[in-house]
Design a protein around this nucleic acid. Structure first.
Lengths: 344, 344
DNA sequence: TTGAAAGCGCTAACAG
DNA sequence: CTGTTAGCGCTTTCAA
């Protein structure tokens, strides 16, 4: 790679390497005569000089490299957005990111952390593929920032989606359309999802605000995949007419996909007979459904940006509590007014 | 980060840094007395020494870093698998990967390439988010390997999916089930997808092998998303009974999703009335459909591994032609025999 | 069997 | 305004 060194440029321009260094990195540039600067630049251009960042890093003790370690970030469909967010701000600020995927293996994680610290990265981000609380690894630097996960004990900068507010937005959408019998197709407790609890809190709060008594029968739980959503939706749709929901808020888009299937099997149409709201805004699901699904987006890109911004010191973070990133509602076509006989 | 240096270890062990270097990196280890080695190791442990890779890299001219630049790798749902494959072999061989996402911007790409070369990466991979042929950037090193794309002109090591064989496998599956009227729901030509052409070749070849005259009416084209698939499938299903397909090979899983929808609207069941095979094996689509979709998997993980292996010199590549990675068929439940009246 | 010494390519005081 | 010089932390001859 970089065959030609700074001394080559210096020789050709008839100056010292110190001068070359200054003009090329734009430091103390005011003190160097314009002619010299010009000569240096031309010489650099002529010999095809490219600075050697390794040497520079050794000297300056700054690598402009940031480490991003994750459990399985690359494998999940959302993860890309987080990466994109982090990468974008890194690029905007001349940083490069070293990505390490530990696949949830603790040994690999320790190794990765050591390798990154050996590589003298300037900053570090610790990312999870889904929102959860983590036991922070002992050898994670103090100033690392957590992405899509909250620290179990240690105080760390962290960012997670505001699931509670997202749940509220989803249910408000339904309430605003006139629904009163709104089911929540939740994930089963055994999955121990923090999102599940938070979204449910949002659901209950909006019901309360709207003066709707929560009906325990309308809180269904299933495996958070299409099959689970279908089964749960079927049970709900089998409820006697007066107790049957006119709308379903689903824990995620996949369950919503199942809800669609259940409705169609019953000969019900979305949104005329049943309104549905999902969560995640999963490309290739939400937008591809028929009708396109109204859902709540997980702010992966924004969280990625935020994490990188605080990692680079571009933004302050409160280490006492995770930053809550808003989850915007994405309105498509799966919400309508309740069927006439339920109207008020 | 690495506060403590090798000289600290040396001081504590009462030896020179040269000795420390040798024992810690296992070089010339035979020439150093076991006692000394022991002392050095203990000292290193005691002071918590961690080698500084930047200094080492400067000295050895080897960074053990590999650059992975892509157009939008992180944003697409498949991309993660390529990353995972590449990352896994990197990890297995003590390499770290720097990921740069250029978002298709040529300027950003040049910058990234320069930054990586300045960073003295030992190897480079140039990845695309979908199979296509690319004009190789001028400043991409000669020994970079192309991932999921083929070079337009230059001879480069490259790996792409064997789409043709994949198309054959898909259609063979249908032929083996007894189908003779097999449609191909293709992407429109304006998208200029190399996969589209190759899969079609596979489709035609298997038809030929089976002695089936291709019916031009059964080659439908649409936008390669669920909506397009649905529209195309509807048109096909509207054909008179004798000309109507009993099976559909879809360009991708999303179109297959649309085919399902069209079938259901017609009151047709998959696979009893209509068999469907997709392509991509897109998680969250293929497996979540009802019934689960038989499809052809894109070998992203394997391609990622392959690319990293040749990048690290672990494997030879023929620069004259891209390596074709097999696309395995994934049998689920969307293929059955043709309905009785079409049986032979 | 071990140590001294010379850099890898660059930056940053300090002189001039 | 520009050059000299002294390292950054490590590896690797060469000498002892």
């Amino acid at each position: 790679m970089g065959r030609v060194r700074m001394s080559d440029v210096a020789a050709r321009a008839g100056v010292s390497t110190a001068t070359v260094s200054m003009v090329l990195s734009g430091v103390n540039t005011a003190r160097i005569s314009p002619q010299t600067q010009q000569r240096v630049r031309e010489a650099a251009e002529a010999v095809g000089y490219e600075p050697n960042s390794v040497a520079r890093s050794l000297r300056t003790q700054q690598t402009r490299l940031v480490g991003l370690v994750s459990d399985t970030i690359a494998t999940t469909p959302f993860a890309g957005r987080m990466l994109a967010g982090a990468n974008d701000v890194a690029r905007e600020h001349g940083r490069l990111v070293i990505l390490v995927d530990t696949e949830g293996d603790v040994g690999a994680e320790r190794q990765a952390l050591q390798a990154l610290s050996g590589q003298q990265v300037d900053a570090m981000i610790y990312a999870c593929m889904w929102h959860r609380v983590v036991e922070v690894p002992a050898d994670l630097p103090e100033d690392a920032v957590l992405l899509d996960c909250a620290p179990a004990t240690a105080n760390r900068a962290a960012v997670v989606p505001d699931e509670r507010a997202g749940g509220m937005a989803a249910v408000r959408e339904l309430v605003a359309a006139g629904h009163r019998r709104i089911a929540y197709l939740d994930a089963e407790e055994r999955f121990d999802l923090v999102a599940s609890r938070l979204r449910r809190e949002g659901y209950l709060q909006v019901l309360a605000e709207a003066g709707i008594e929560p009906d325990p029968f309308l809180h269904a739980r299933a495996e958070p995949v299409a099959g689970g959503g279908r089964a749960a939706a079927r049970r709900l749709l089998d409820l006697p007419a007066g107790r049957r929901p006119t709308a379903m808020f689903c824990f995620n888009d996949r369950m919503a996909m199942g809800a669609y299937a259940a409705a169609h099997q019953r000969g019900l149409s979305v949104p005329d007979d049943l309104s549905v709201v999902g969560y995640d805004d999963q490309q290739l699901v939400a937008a591809e459904l028929d009708p396109p699904l109204t859902t709540v987006a997980l702010p992966h890109y924004e969280m990625g940006r935020w994490a990188m911004e605080v990692a680079l010191g571009l933004r302050e973070a409160d280490p006492a509590a995770p930053h809550l990133m808003p989850c915007p509602i994405v309105r498509r076509a799966s919400v309508g007014p309740p069927p006439a006989q339920f109207g008020d």
